[in-house]
Amino acid sequence: MLSEHCLFCHGEMGARVSWACFFEEAEESFLCPSCEAQLTEIQGETCQICCRPLEKLDPQYICGDLCYDCVRWEEDPEWKGHLQKNASLYLYNNFLKELISQYKFRGDYILAKAFSRKINEKLRRIEYDYIVPIPLSAERQFERGFNQSEALIREVGLSPAYLLQRTHSEKQSKKSRTERIHIPQVFELRAESEIKDKKILLIDDIYTTGSTLRHAAKILMQAGAKSVMSFTLARG
């Protein structure tokens, strides 16, 4: 019933009958071809840490295979080495902005399905012990009714591990980069004993400055995690 209409524009999907239908298992798709086409997958050379495409970046902000932002993070002894690597699926273009805003601010949970196939493909290539959603504050969680990162995990059929919680609420989008980086630790640990020597994969919807993920990575590494990687739907 659901895949008759595009999850985003609600246009009819139309039956795509081809020879492939007889030979392959039909792939479930939730977006119509014209919406799907507006998503841009990240390809080509990217920063080896944060997955930022290097192609469009001014060469003066590239140092080897890293972007200048990551170089700065890694030069700082307080942050060095905490976040091993980030992988992101799509460029945060206007279309994805609209989609994500409908998904998380309007609370249209089911849009998580639109990404699940691609997310699954990516996650299969990452080795980890725990897959951990970036938590929301209690207020935010009530407001939305769900955690958008947790939903991305659930909709690919995985079980999230709740290793983190927010210490207090902060509206990230209203802050500048410096402010975001220098906020005091926003996460605290739950189930601390489980973390030692584990490979942790953090999940968030968007990587913007990387500050949220690095804060989470730092506290997990300090608790003895073996490594922390992250995956985000969009790379801002």
């Binding site: 996650l123 299969r124 080795e127 980890y128 012990d129 725990y130 897959i131 938590p135 209690a138 969680q141 009530f142 955690n147 995985l158 079980s159 999230p160 591990a161 709740y162 290793l163 919680q165 739950r190 189930a191 489980e194 490979k199």
Partner: peptide
């Protein structure tokens, strides 16, 4: 690949119900 869920930690988040 380590997707097995046998030792998942499930904690219910306390929010205003």
């Amino acid at each position: 690949m380590s997707n097995d869920s046998s030792n998942q930690i499930s904690i219910i988040i306390e929010v205003f119900l």
